[in-house]
Amino acid sequence: MTEQNEVLDRGPFLHGTKAVLQVGGQLQSNHLSNYQEKRSNYIYFTATLEAAKWGAELAKGDGQERIYLVEPLGAFENDPNLTDQRFPGNPTRSYRSKDPLLVVAELG
């Protein structure tokens, strides 16, 4: 995880989902995953529109795909599920955090 004063990426950051989220609300870890029937220890987000769209497309459910502008409220790290395992480096600029994400806006 990054330290609070270490800048891994300046964003802006996005979260793709089919869930309806409230601006001003927070996404928390340890809730059911967007993709599997299990609790997730992390909240996942990205700094690229393409990766956010991909996340929304892959999310479970029949709802409308949505992309939200989010702000990490704590430390975060490269998503190891994509970084180096699938794509050398982090070209998708995909991250995860155990700290909440603030929902800033829904992109239209």
Rank of each mutant, 00 (worst) to 15 (best):
1 M>N: 11
1 M>W: 08
4 Q>T: 11
7 V>H: 12
7 V>C: 11
7 V>Y: 06
10 R>A: 15
10 R>T: 14
12 P>V: 05
13 F>E: 08
14 L>F: 13
14 L>T: 04
15 H>K: 10
16 G>R: 01
16 G>K: 03
17 T>P: 07
17 T>C: 05
20 V>N: 06
22 Q>S: 15
25 G>E: 12
27 L>Q: 07
27 L>I: 13
30 N>R: 13
30 N>T: 03
30 N>E: 13
31 H>E: 13
33 S>R: 08
35 Y>A: 12
35 Y>N: 06
36 Q>Y: 14
36 Q>C: 09
36 Q>G: 05
37 E>N: 15
37 E>M: 14
38 K>W: 08
40 S>L: 08
40 S>P: 08
41 N>V: 07
42 Y>P: 02
42 Y>H: 12
42 Y>A: 10
42 Y>M: 13
46 T>V: 14
47 A>H: 00
48 T>R: 04
48 T>H: 03
48 T>Y: 00
49 L>S: 01
49 L>P: 00
49 L>K: 04
50 E>C: 03
50 E>N: 07
50 E>S: 13
51 A>Q: 15
51 A>V: 00
51 A>R: 13
53 K>N: 06
56 A>N: 01
56 A>I: 09
56 A>R: 06
57 E>D: 11
58 L>H: 13
60 K>T: 08
61 G>A: 11
61 G>S: 06
61 G>Y: 05
62 D>N: 15
62 D>C: 12
62 D>A: 13
63 G>T: 09
63 G>W: 01
63 G>A: 12
66 R>S: 10
71 E>R: 14
74 G>D: 13
74 G>Q: 02
75 A>K: 10
76 F>Q: 05
78 N>I: 09
78 N>C: 07
78 N>M: 10
80 P>A: 14
81 N>L: 10
81 N>C: 09
81 N>A: 14
85 Q>N: 13
88 P>M: 09
89 G>P: 03
89 G>C: 07
90 N>M: 08
90 N>L: 06
90 N>P: 00
90 N>C: 07
90 N>K: 06
92 T>V: 03
92 T>G: 02
94 S>M: 02
96 R>K: 15
99 D>P: 00
99 D>V: 01
102 L>S: 03
104 V>E: 00
105 A>V: 00
108 G>C: 05
